[in-house]
Design a protein around this nucleic acid. Structure first.
Lengths: 252, 252
DNA sequence: ATGGTGAAGGTGGTCCGACCACCAGCGTTG
DNA sequence: CAACGCTGGTGGTCGGACCACCTTCACCAT
């Protein structure tokens, strides 16, 4: 049985809810930021129980399409397109992604993004980039604050590249990457150095020097990688007691 | 409020379940293909209601980490790493991704993948690629069947590239892309032509000719794009009655 | 008036317990 | 020996009660 694409599992009703909402979005009845009806009403309207409706909403929320706020309501996601950070993190643990693979993926995406930004970026983007670079110089003594602008810088490049899909993919990877980075406060030494490179990237993009933008971005990311590569090696290998044939009665 | 990365919402208990399972996976207690305890038992073990547990499982299932089979049990995903196809399709509808952006993203990923495959691929991968190419030649009169091997060919390249993360991203995009493609049966004329190019890609990879592999893949994808670009243009623009200030009482 | 305070209503979150639908396995039956 | 059908276990659905959170607004003290 050559299951062509994907065995889109999931129960009937859950699927029904997902598709219903998808349809509402596709035909424009729901737009980013909009609020969906209260669960009780919506469930009644769809002729299903609230539990089933919630299952569907859960799926949409897990995929980052809906945004649920306790005591307020459920809304269609609006911010920068994103695909939930957890997914990749989970898959990472599941399939044993290596850090170098993460960096490689990021390198490929971001270098292209930089090139595209140099090619298609507009004045407003350049201004935003300059702003963030300035902020980085001003905060390289405060890793916490610096990181904010670092992220915004890369995010702005992705926006300037004019391809939201690539931007989403980049966000997904960097989110998974930062999960580890957030723990280790960077030395301000390398931060100042990083700010320098960010500035060069910015200049290359503004000058619409495509290959230079790509090259600089690659250089930057390689440095970032080697700077973070230290604090690894201490990952305890996943050990699993070879279940001795019988029941292992795991400690779930 | 500079929300750094993502506002990881979701309720307490749902989160608790997700993290619990994540922990089980990370420390090796759960591996791909394993089965998790029955919902009733698991819920009791975690001291939560079955409903809450199901909410958590729902999230994990939506992210493609768990695979629920009615009447059988819930399992940890094992197949080729994948990130659920719906998510991107949903985001697509939500943020109005253009087809050319999809193709651009795919082009970037797959061309790199082809290059990496030429660089790192092993004999076993080459053999599998040859197999699929042969199958394509044998089935170019049957679009349905052809598609299977087409997919497998690209998937094998991704595997040969040795970076599962990039493979996941590719799968995500192609899945969203095929959703539209499945509807339109391809002309066998172009399929035979496509088979030719696949063969050339294969030869380039086997010869470890990195730049040639990349170039051929780019060529192939560009042709595929223009071949599919026809059946567009008929997308009814999302119209939304500008709510006249009052309540619109939409037809959810 | 102004500003704080608390009650009310609406919304999502959790729980319970029952029942339905599906699947695999095994014994019975022809 | 093969086909049938029962049975146990598992996920799917239901409804309805109650909890937790947020917003609003009337009320009261300043």
């Amino acid at each position: 049985m050559p299951n062509s694409i994907r065995n889109t599992n999931d129960a009937h009703l859950t699927m029904q809810v997902v598709n219903h909402v998808r349809a509402l979005i596709e035909n424009g009845a729901l737009r980013p930021g909009d609020r969906i009806p209260p669960e009780r009403d919506f469930a009644r309207k769809l002729k299903i129980s609230r539990a089933s409706l919630r299952a569907g909403i859960g799926h949409l929320a897990a995929m980052g399409v809906l945004n649920v706020r306790h005591g307020v309501g459920t809304f269609v996601a609006d911010g920068p397109p994103a695909l939930g950070s957890d997914p990749l993190a989970l898959l990472s643990a599941l399939h044993g992604f290596k850090p170098w693979q993460m960096f490689e993926a990021r390198l490929i995406l971001e270098s292209h993004l930089a090139a595209l930004a140099a090619e298609r970026g507009r004045e407003e983007h350049f201004a935003a980039l300059a702003e963030e670079v300035a902020e980085m110089y001003a905060t390289f003594h405060d890793p916490q604050e610096y990181l904010i602008h670092d992220i915004r810088f890369h995010r702005t490049i992705a926006e300037a590249a004019g391809n939201p899909i690539l931007a989403v993919l980049m966000e997904t990877i960097t989110a998974a990457l930062y999960d580890e980075r957030r723990k280790t406060a960077e030395r301000s030494k390398s931060l100042k150095q990083a700010a320098e490179i960010h500035r060069e990237i910015y200049r290359a993009i503004r000058a619409r020097n495509i290959s230079e933008a790509r090259t600089m971005m690659e250089k930057h990311l390689r440095m970032a990688q080697s700077a973070q590569v230290d604090e690894v090696a201490s990952k305890p290998k996943a050990t699993r007691k070879k279940s001795s044939g019988k029941k292992a009665k795991a400690a779930y």
